[in-house]
Simulated scan of single mutants.
Amino acid sequence: MRARIDEIVFDCADPAKLVRFWAALLGGTPVDRSADWSYVDVEGFTRLAFQRVPEGKTVKNRVHLDLDAGDIAAAGAEAVALGAELTGGVVTDAQGSFQVLRDPEGNEFCFVAV
């Protein structure tokens, strides 16, 4: 049997707020299914969903999204304007460049350019 990814789910404190951040960043229309569950269908990608949990984030994500930004500086500035936080500077090596950010609830993600 082979499974396929149906959606990627983020645990969070405020699903409605977080889905609007990601919808603004990636495109798509935010949907609030309930006060505890929101999602956005991102064109060309799987659904991102956000579920309310009682505990806060305490450690680094074990999984994160790498987003092809093209212009990392411009993408980072836009993300910050939407509520993200930059963590460190742009890192460049022989494989390309990346910038680590945190969404409004502290979930790490990267803008990449290869």
Results as ranks from 00 to 15, higher is better:
51 Q>S: 06
80 V>W: 03
29 T>C: 05
82 L>M: 00
108 E>F: 03
4 R>P: 03
33 R>Y: 11
8 I>V: 15
111 F>S: 02
70 G>A: 00
96 G>Y: 08
97 S>N: 10
94 A>E: 15
17 K>D: 11
87 T>P: 02
79 A>K: 01
15 P>C: 10
114 V>N: 11
114 V>I: 09
70 G>C: 00
106 G>T: 03
36 D>F: 10
21 F>K: 01
64 H>G: 04
7 E>A: 15
103 D>S: 06
1 M>S: 15
75 A>Y: 04
100 V>A: 13
79 A>H: 04
12 C>N: 04
53 V>T: 07
84 A>H: 08
44 G>N: 06
63 V>Q: 08
48 L>H: 07
96 G>M: 10
35 A>R: 13
82 L>K: 00
51 Q>D: 05
14 D>N: 15
5 I>V: 15
52 R>G: 05
89 G>H: 04
73 A>P: 01
65 L>Q: 08
56 G>A: 13
6 D>T: 12
10 F>W: 11
83 G>W: 09
6 D>N: 15
21 F>P: 02
113 A>R: 11
70 G>R: 00
93 D>M: 10
26 L>T: 00
40 V>L: 09
14 D>E: 14
18 L>V: 08
53 V>Q: 04
67 L>S: 11
29 T>M: 05
97 S>I: 11
34 S>R: 01
60 K>C: 04
39 Y>D: 14
69 A>F: 03
102 R>L: 15
46 T>N: 10
49 A>K: 03
36 D>S: 10
2 R>T: 15
85 E>R: 13
109 F>R: 03
35 A>Q: 13
